[in-house]
Amino acid sequence: MSSVLLLSCPDQPGIVAATAQSIADNGGNIVHAEQYVKADDGETGSVFFQRVVFDLADSVTNASFQTAFAPTAEELDMTVDLRDSAVPIPTAIMASKQPHCLYDLLIRWRSGELPMDLRVVVSNHPDHEGICTHMGIPYVHLPVTRETKPEQERQVLATLDEHGVELIVMARYMQILSDDFVSHHPMRIINIHHSFLPAFIGANPYRQAHERGVKLIGATAHYATADLDEGPIIAQDTAHVSHRETVAQLTSRGRDLETVVLARAVAAHLEHRVAVHGHRTIVYN
Rank of each mutant, 00 (worst) to 15 (best):
residue 5 L to I: 08
residue 10 P to I: 14
residue 16 V to I: 14
residue 19 T to W: 03
residue 24 A to K: 14
residue 30 I to E: 10
residue 32 H to R: 15
residue 32 H to M: 10
residue 35 Q to G: 11
residue 41 D to L: 12
residue 46 S to I: 03
residue 49 F to P: 04
residue 54 F to C: 11
residue 57 A to V: 08
residue 57 A to P: 00
residue 62 N to L: 14
residue 73 A to E: 07
residue 78 M to E: 02
residue 80 V to Q: 12
residue 82 L to A: 08
residue 83 R to W: 03
residue 85 S to A: 15
residue 91 T to C: 15
residue 96 S to Y: 01
residue 96 S to L: 02
residue 96 S to H: 00
residue 96 S to N: 03
residue 108 R to S: 02
residue 109 W to G: 07
residue 113 E to C: 04
residue 117 D to K: 00
residue 118 L to E: 01
residue 122 V to S: 05
residue 125 H to C: 08
residue 130 G to H: 13
residue 132 C to D: 04
residue 132 C to I: 02
residue 132 C to T: 03
residue 135 M to A: 13
residue 136 G to A: 11
residue 138 P to L: 08
residue 139 Y to R: 05
residue 143 P to G: 13
residue 143 P to I: 07
residue 148 T to F: 00
residue 149 K to E: 03
residue 158 A to G: 09
residue 162 E to Y: 06
residue 163 H to F: 11
residue 165 V to R: 01
residue 166 E to I: 00
residue 169 V to W: 06
residue 170 M to Q: 09
residue 172 R to A: 14
residue 172 R to L: 15
residue 173 Y to C: 14
residue 180 D to C: 04
residue 180 D to T: 15
residue 185 H to T: 00
residue 188 R to M: 06
residue 193 H to S: 12
residue 198 P to H: 08
residue 206 Y to H: 12
residue 207 R to Y: 10
residue 208 Q to N: 09
residue 209 A to K: 10
residue 210 H to C: 04
residue 221 A to L: 01
residue 226 A to T: 14
residue 227 D to C: 04
residue 231 G to D: 03
residue 232 P to D: 01
residue 233 I to N: 05
residue 237 D to L: 04
residue 238 T to F: 05
residue 241 V to K: 08
residue 244 R to K: 15
residue 248 A to G: 05
residue 250 L to G: 09
residue 252 S to V: 07
residue 254 G to R: 03
residue 255 R to I: 09
residue 255 R to Q: 15
residue 263 A to C: 09
residue 266 V to K: 05
residue 267 A to K: 13
residue 274 V to P: 07
residue 274 V to A: 07
residue 276 V to A: 06
residue 280 R to I: 01
residue 280 R to Y: 10
residue 284 Y to E: 03
residue 285 N to A: 15
